[in-house]
């Protein structure tokens, strides 16, 4: 565990907390993509199956349980409790266009052809693109509430911080995981346009609005 890694994990946790607080306080999930949330739940469930097979540390198990349970809670809030506020018509990204290529890619490019390893690889690939329905929703409506922007910024920062962690671990421990590094870079690149808008607009107190 190094500082980049810890900061990345905390940023990830913060993103989830911001999201839940936003939904709970405003009693609304307007502007949020339920499809991205379904993809994230799928990511955590397929990645953290080793929770029942391998014990790594209390921290590791605790975070895995938190990520799985909060993503399921978010889905419950969006599709059940606050269903009436869910922006269904704008959330029209076809997630099978992401899931199917990730399934194929994980079957072809993986480091071990075992059930757990292929599912882990699938989750890494899927996570890198899971935010696309949310970004698509923002681009469709042309704007995002500040709180949604903070959520996206924290969520995007997490993988960017992981890249620093991977660089550090490569030099400090000789540890590297090519699949995770490659997908993590793709994931971070997808946020770049958003990061730019966040810094130039949201941090200056303006609403995130896309140029027409």
């Amino acid at each position: 565990m190094n500082l980049f890694r810890l900061a990345g994990d905390l940023s990830h946790l913060l993103a989830i907390i911001i999201l839940l607080i936003k939904i709970w306080k405003t009693r609304s999930c307007a502007g949020l993509s339920g499809k991205s949330q379904i993809l994230f739940a799928l990511v955590y469930i397929t990645r953290y199956l080793d929770l029942v097979t391998t014990y790594i540390s209390l921290y590791n198990s605790f975070m895995k349980v938190i990520f799985i349970s909060t993503s399921l809670a978010t889905i419950y809030l969006m599709y059940s409790k606050f269903r009436a506020t869910y922006d269904k018509n704008h959330d029209s990204f076809r997630i099978e266009f992401l899931i199917i290529p990730c399934v194929i890619l994980s079957l072809v490019i993986n480091s071990n052809f075992t059930v757990l390893e292929v599912l882990w690889t699938f989750s890494i690939y899927l996570e890198s693109v899971a935010i696309l329905p949310q970004l698509f929703l923002v681009s469709k409506t042309g704007e995002a509430e500040s709180i949604t922007s903070h959520y996206l910024f924290a969520l995007g920062s997490y993988r960017a911080l992981y890249i620093l962690n991977w660089i550090y671990r490569y030099y400090a421990e000789g540890h590297y995981e090519l699949i995770a590094i490659f997908a993590g870079c793709v994931q971070t690149i997808l946020y770049c346009d958003f990061f730019y808008l966040y810094v130039t607009k949201v941090l200056k107190g303006k609403k995130l609005q896309l140029p027409a």
Partner: peptide, 10 residues
């Protein structure tokens, strides 16, 4: 991954 192929990252 450690020597048993376990992943310590999240």
């Amino acid at each position: 991954k450690d020597e048993f192929g376990n992943k310590d990252e999240l």
